[in-house]
Amino acid sequence: MQVTAHVHCVPVTTPTLFPATTTNVFFVTDGMTAVLIDAGYEHEQVHQDVVTYWKQIGSPRVEAILLTHFHRDHTPGAKYFAKFFDCPIVAHPVEVPYVEEEISPARVTQTLVEGDVWKIGEVELQVLHAPGHTHGCLNFWLPEDGVLFTADNVVGLGTTWIGPPEGDLTAYLATLRRLKTFGAAWIAPGHGEMISDVEEKIDFFIGRRLEREEQVVRLLDEQARTVDELVEAVYGDTVHPSVMWVAVRTIQGHVLKLAGDGRVKEVDGVYSLIG
């Protein structure tokens, strides 16, 4: 559906994490030309949904597929769309080898970095390097419509997980604080509906991370613990076994940040507070 003057959102079914069941594919267009932001999963229904919508908006010439990050609920569909639209696949240089694992034998033929601008006719899409969820995550700022494309840094359903090896909690919090400075009217998230309460939503995401961090600190103040012991203390039996890896990597992300901040130390896999 059309969500602003130049932005259209096509939610497509993907194997993503609950509570989300779809991933957003965005068209940014001036009516004549367009780019895709993200491409969803490699599935015939995804292809049909995006192409059908493209025809409904007048079949603008798609100049590129801009991938925010390599995760397979956002990226593999680019293999089909690059061929269908006869356009390049574009990603941050750090993401290229991981993206190409998902889209093989297609290749990334162009990269974007912080400060680049992609023009769709007279409409300018500003490129933001927004690490945190992944090291080479791209977000985009469309000042003409006041829209921030935040990928999984800010989502419309639930929260997002941040953990090693691709995630970095310190970088993530810095990215969230930076996203607040744009004064956006809208967030176009990787999952869920468009977000209008921009500052409140970003503050919520920051607050959730800091609350979890302090929970970890309190647990380590009681006694030194391993990551597995922290996971059990934080999540107990509230996490389904199929996504337990998310809980583990989330806690790993927190203790790594706390170690980097000089608040905890690790000896033989056991973490304890410093001082």
Rank of each mutant, 00 (worst) to 15 (best):
M1S: 15
V3M: 12
T4E: 00
V10F: 09
V12E: 10
T16S: 11
A20I: 05
T21A: 07
T23C: 07
V28Y: 05
T29H: 12
D30H: 06
V35Y: 11
L36F: 14
D38R: 13
E44W: 13
H47L: 00
V51L: 04
W54N: 10
Q56K: 13
S59H: 01
R61D: 13
V62S: 10
V62F: 09
V62C: 07
L66N: 08
L66S: 04
H69I: 03
R72I: 04
T75I: 01
K79S: 15
Y80P: 01
K83E: 13
F84C: 10
D86V: 02
C87T: 01
P88L: 03
V90D: 12
E95N: 06
P97S: 10
Y98V: 00
S104G: 01
T109I: 02
T109D: 08
T109M: 07
T111N: 07
T111Q: 11
G115Y: 02
I120V: 15
L128Q: 04
H133T: 01
N139A: 15
N139C: 15
F140L: 08
L142P: 15
E144G: 09
V147E: 08
L148Q: 09
T150C: 12
T150A: 15
T150N: 07
D152R: 03
V154W: 00
G156N: 01
G158D: 10
P164Q: 08
P165V: 03
D168V: 03
D168Y: 08
L169N: 12
T170V: 15
T170E: 11
Y172E: 09
L173Y: 13
T175P: 11
T175G: 10
T181N: 05
A184D: 03
P189C: 10
G190A: 04
G192D: 05
M194E: 00
I195T: 07
I195H: 03
D197E: 14
D197V: 01
E200C: 07
I202H: 06
F204E: 14
F204L: 07
F204I: 00
F205L: 05
F205V: 12
R209K: 15
R209M: 14
E211Q: 14
E214A: 11
E214Y: 15
Q215E: 14
R218A: 15
L219F: 11
D221W: 08
V227G: 08
E229N: 02
V239K: 06
V246F: 14
A247K: 09
V248S: 01
R249L: 00
H254T: 12
V255I: 03
A259P: 02
D261S: 05
D261H: 14
D261L: 15
D261N: 10
G262V: 00
V267C: 05
D268H: 03
G269S: 05
L273K: 06
I274F: 06
